[in-house]
Design a protein around this nucleic acid. Sequence first.
DNA 1: CTACGAGTTGAAGCCAACTTGAGGTCAAGC
DNA 2: GCTTGACCTCAAGTTGGCTTCAACTCGTAG
Lengths: 149, 149
Amino acid sequence: MNMMDIGEVAMRSGASPSTLRYYEEVGLIRSVGRHGLRRQFDPSVLLKLSLIELGKVAGFSLGEIAGMFGDDETLNIPRADLHAKADELGRQITKLRVLRDAMRHVADCPAPSHLQCPSFRKLLKSVSSRKAGGRAGARRTDRPPPKDV
Amino acid sequence: MNMMDIGEVAMRSGASPSTLRYYEEVGLIRSVGRHGLRRQFDPSVLLKLSLIELGKVAGFSLGEIAGMFGDDETLNIPRADLHAKADELGRQITKLRVLRDAMRHVADCPAPSHLQCPSFRKLLKSVSSRKAGGRAGARRTDRPPPKDV
DNA sequence: CTACGAGTTGAAGCCAACTTGAGGTCAAGC
DNA sequence: GCTTGACCTCAAGTTGGCTTCAACTCGTAG
């Protein structure tokens, strides 16, 4: 009694049926048969979907996530990649913290206009110098956002 | 001697001419005339572009940023909105920190497969429960990423 | 005067990750 | 046997923030 049809998988995983079909189309998951037309899934797909969701949250693209599942069914994330991602995340976190603190400061700053606030001006300058300067560190990934978790 | 043509604005701001045209099209910036066909900009546009960049980095959409410039030319970010954004940023930061730490733990975890790592399983569970549970806090914004700064 | 190059326009394309829509199919319940 | 409703397929649409394209127009240097 183990096959689940797509509706049940959708309900239990929180992903919509269209998403599940999409994931199958791009090779992220596999259905193991049909009941009439309906895709049937092995319950293990739920774990896989959790892993996928986790990967998305961590900022991996679906393509990258797909690469983490080996040819066999087992999970296979190179530890070095994990560390790299964690480091990247750490850098991102630092930047966001700076930004957050600056925003708070500006919000509380008594200067009549934000433009008069020294902190705000400093922030502005740092932003524009990063762009105009075109330093080596300026990545251009435009990867989708770490979703709200 | 103050009008700058689009090429100069592009160079000084780091935004491409097409971006500048796009920004004008959507009403974010204004050109103040033409020299032949070429748009001419007031130098104040450079400050405005810095502000726009800052807004993007902070995670505001172009539409939201547009709303921050009053009918006059002055900047006008409600302090409450700033606080709200800062808070949101703070929550995001917290989540990312949890994620980062978990990733690091997993990367260093001696369990033969990640799936055996208790920390990993916990992380998985937290992700999937957030989805299936459909709590009130679960936003669905899919806003573009806070860019790399 | 003529070539050049930096601009112009409007429309179309791009990216990821899905969602939507039209028209069709099937198993189960009455 | 017939309805129902959940599924199917395939193609196209959505979102945001641009970029690219083709065909064109100017001001300026030579």
